[in-house]
Amino acid sequence: MTNKLHIKSYSHIKRQTVSVNGNVVFKGDDADFPNFIKSAYKHLKTSYSKFFKMDNLSKLAFLAADTLLMHESLSEEENNIALILSNKASSLDTDRKHQKSIENQEEYFPSPAVFVYTLPNICLGEISIKHKLYSENSFFIFDRFNAEHLYLYANNLLQNNKAEKVLCGWVDFDENSYEAFLYLVESKGEIVHNTEEINRLYNLL
């Protein structure tokens, strides 16, 4: 019953560059993340107004996912693509913003629009809403990219028919440093799904 699994496609967003399958699709010239990601969004013609309400982490994860899922000819009704994302800084970028808004009683103005993003898995919700994924989703925190963990978890979901495809990876946003590496696992594809290959692709750019 064990099916051979493959990595069908992968994307990187780091150092002002968006790449798909190792090929640069957008290179920005603004070192500031909000400006960079907005330019990338426009360049990639991602038409989705909710994007502008998202926090930095969700924008990063959403765009990295979109560059892969736009090629998947997805159903408008529903798709069974599980999401397994991970990072180091959780939602700390937005956590610090919320904390600042409650730090002293004179300037006490907590906002629900900020608070909702103080959870790392909100970006999974954003991707699920856009692509109609009523699927498994989990967010893990590690101090570094952990290929073995992602490999085993994706393998488990696919071999037990809990998902048709799995979108895995790392989306980290902390201060103004950011990095996304996502890859899509399914039965079709050229690259064998194993820990070595996942690490090779992660380190490719």
Binding site: S90, L119, N121, N137, F139, F140, I141, F142, N146
Partner: peptide, 25 residues
């Protein structure tokens, strides 16, 4: 950092494998 929390618990008890932190609301 949640990974630091994981490391603190791992070290306190002497777990031999890395802590996995699940943070899914």
């Amino acid at each position: 950092y949640l990974s630091e929390l994981g490391k603190t618990l791992k070290d306190f008890f002497g777990f031999k494998s890395e802590a996995i932190v699940v943070s899914n609301a």
